[in-house]
């Protein structure tokens, strides 16, 4: 119950605080430069120069403290020792390059990066095309989209249940092994099956991300001008040709956006690996490796930060690409 009041009072204080700041600071500004009287024009001009910063102030403060400052602090820590007391130059990075677990993580992240965006986009495209003009298409879309709402941890439980293993010959309670056994194969411990276990983890993320890809791509498919499709059909194109030669090329831009968005999710993938294998049996990824160095045993903030910076470097190209796109738009 006290928890409840704590939450309620936080919302009240938070909301009240925000409103008080925005309203109060505006009020003060209007007092200092009243928009009437002899200097009204001049005052309004001055006030309008300051006002945007009042509106932006809290946001800039939060972004600065919670996202910008940490990047530089991580950079600083990555060239210092475990407790941040001594400058060690590039030795954390040098250590990373030689570390077997780090190389395994990089390799796995790379495979994730190739497989998950490709499969999610492909399935999303198929799902979008298949459901788009069906009568029950919207219900179908909802159901494919649904895993988006499920946490990675929840998805981990769901899929671990599917991969569950029982001795050969026993009643299998995991769906995958039940199917394998029904087809005459031997049940497997899928999550310890090196190197294929990586793919069984990737399946979980593909399952989650396909809905996202489908929603975006389906909107893009609907945006294709009818004439181009009709013209192709009149020229005798088969449905396959219409799809691959006419539709897909026209939504290439959207496919790229979907692909990069999923790429970013993949780079940061943590929960799925954390709860399903915890990086054992050759499934380590960067985000989980970093967590290990930060919180397991004796924390080593230097090495942990170095891994974080590597992650940051990996997303930087996408970041710059997005920023360039937006700047073009804003102008």
């Amino acid at each position: 119950m006290e928890l409840f009041w704590l939450a309620v009072s936080t919302i009240a204080i938070g909301v009240f605080g925000c409103v008080a700041w925005f309203w109060g600071s505006n009020w003060v500004l209007d007092r200092i430069y009243p928009p009437r009287g002899p200097d009204a024009g001049d005052n309004i001009r001055k006030a309008n120069q300051i006002r945007p910063w009042l509106f932006l102030g809290p946001a800039i403060l939060f972004l600065g403290v919670y996202l910008v400052y940490p990047i530089f602090d991580s950079l600083w820590r990555s060239v210092h020792n475990a407790r941040g007391t001594e400058f060690v130059g590039g030795s954390n990075y040098a250590w990373l390059m030689g570390d077997g677990k780090f190389r395994e993580s990089m390799r796995n992240n790379l495979v994730w990066l190739l497989v998950v965006p490709a499969l999610s986009t492909l399935f999303g495209l198929i799902a979008a095309q298949l459901t788009d003009r069906l009568k029950w298409g919207n219900i179908g879309k909802s159901l494919i989209f649904m895993p988006m709402a499920i946490s990675f941890v929840g998805a981990g439980v769901i899929w671990k249940f599917i991969y569950e293993y029982r001795e050969p010959g026993e009643a299998q309670i995991g769906l995958l092994n039940a199917i394998v056994q029904a087809l005459g194969g031997g049940p497997q411990l899928w999550l310890t099956l090196i190197p294929w276990n990586n793919f069984f983890l990737m399946v979980v993320l593909v399952w989650i991300q396909t809905g996202f890809a489908m929603v975006i791509l389906s909107a893009a498919l609907r945006g294709i001008p009818e004439e181009t499709i009709e013209a192709a059909i009149l020229d005798g194109a088969s449905p396959w040709q219409v799809f691959f030669r006419i539709k897909v090329p026209q939504i290439m831009g959207t496919i790229a956006v979907v692909w990069t968005t999923i790429t970013i999710v993949v780079l940061k993938v943590f929960d799925i690996v954390f709860v399903m294998t915890n990086g054992q049996w050759g499934t380590q990824v960067l985000a989980n490796l970093m967590y290990d160095w930060m919180f397991r045993g004796t924390p080593d903030y230097g090495r942990g930060s170095a891994i974080a910076i590597i992650l940051m470097l990996l997303v930087t190209p996408i970041m710059i690409w997005n920023m360039l796109n937006v700047r073009r738009e804003v102008r």
Binding site: I71, L267, A308, L311, M312, V315, M319, M323
Partner: peptide, 29 residues
């Protein structure tokens, strides 16, 4: 909707920050 110098850069910065991996922020914060 407000005109002020630096608007385009700020907008781009916000978009850039969209993709910052949370992991970077954990230790410092």
């Amino acid at each position: 909707w407000m005109e002020f110098p630096g608007r385009a850069i700020l907008t781009a910065a916000v978009v850039g920050l969209l993709v910052v991996p949370l992991q970077v922020a954990l230790i410092p914060l």
